[in-house]
Computed example of a mutant assay.
Amino acid sequence: MIYSSEHFSISHLKPKDALQLNKLLVSNTDRFIRFLPKTLAENRTLESTRNYIQRKVTSAEKRKEFVFIIHDNHSKDIIGMIILKNLDWDAKQGEFAYCIGNRFKGKGFMSDAIRATSNYVIKNLGLETLQILSHKTNFPSVNTAIKAGFKWQCTLKDEFKPLNGTPLDMELFEFSSSS
């Protein structure tokens, strides 16, 4: 476990998380489809989620990508996930992608989880700059970034292409351990 609060805890993704992770992603497909299409595509069935977890565990061992799971402390259910990706060890930089189940949105959990995971990543992995990319209309994600202490940097033109959509400009937020 990397963090625990009154309401939730955060840990590295493990094989035992397969059923609950699949449940979270499948039951929130409509909510996640626009900005997490690849993750959803890799988790359509329980078997595909088991394969996804094995790939992500291996990826973490190779320090290429890390997946953190957010558990509700009362029900022990998985309520969200944070992916640390696009790692550049020379620049000491990485990017977060994240999601939280519909039942838990708007409670401030994700901002707290991003803040806690940022602290963990800086202290334990040695990264210095963390990024979040969000579309300007994804107000919950923009608010999460700001509340977690990330600062808006710029708009990246045509940065993200949603399924069957035209490329979208994305807002870049950064958190630096030196600020």
Rank of each mutant, 00 (worst) to 15 (best):
L156F: 10
K107A: 11
N51S: 12
G149Q: 07
I82F: 09
N28D: 05
L163A: 13
V142H: 08
K92E: 10
D30Y: 01
M81N: 14
S111I: 01
D30K: 10
E6Q: 12
P162E: 04
A145W: 08
S141N: 05
S177R: 14
G80D: 11
S59V: 01
K123S: 15
E174D: 07
I10R: 04
T45D: 01
T58A: 15
R55L: 09
G101P: 11
L21D: 03
G126S: 01
F104E: 13
R31K: 08
A60P: 03
K136I: 02
H135R: 06
I2M: 10
V142L: 06
S141I: 15
K56R: 15
S59N: 03
F109K: 00
V67A: 02
E95I: 04
I78G: 09
I100T: 10
V142N: 09
S11I: 05
S118A: 13
L133I: 00
S177G: 12
T58H: 14
D90R: 09
S4Y: 07
T117Y: 11
K85Q: 14
N119F: 09
S178Y: 13
V121T: 15
F173S: 03
H7F: 07
N138Y: 10
F175S: 06
G149I: 11
L168F: 09
D90M: 09
T45M: 06
A91E: 14
E159F: 10
A116V: 07
E65Q: 03
T49V: 05
N43T: 12
E65A: 01
C99L: 15
N102Y: 09
F150R: 06
F150P: 11
F8L: 07
T39Q: 13
F8V: 04
H74W: 00
T155H: 00
Q131V: 11
F8C: 02
T166C: 06
M81A: 10
W89E: 08
L156K: 04
T45A: 01
Y52H: 14
M81C: 11
R50D: 03
D72C: 13
T129D: 08
P167F: 05
A148H: 07
Q20A: 11
S134W: 10
H12G: 00
M1Y: 07
I132W: 02
T39K: 12
A148G: 12
S9M: 05
Y3D: 00
N22M: 00
G94Q: 05
L163D: 04
S5E: 04
Y120D: 01
N43S: 06
N124E: 15
W89K: 08
K147I: 00
E128Y: 12
L87N: 01
F68I: 00
P167G: 02
A113E: 07
K161M: 12
V67T: 11
F160P: 05
N28P: 10
R55M: 05
R55T: 03
S118M: 05
D158P: 00
R115S: 12
G126F: 04
K157Q: 13
S141A: 14
Q93V: 01
G106E: 12
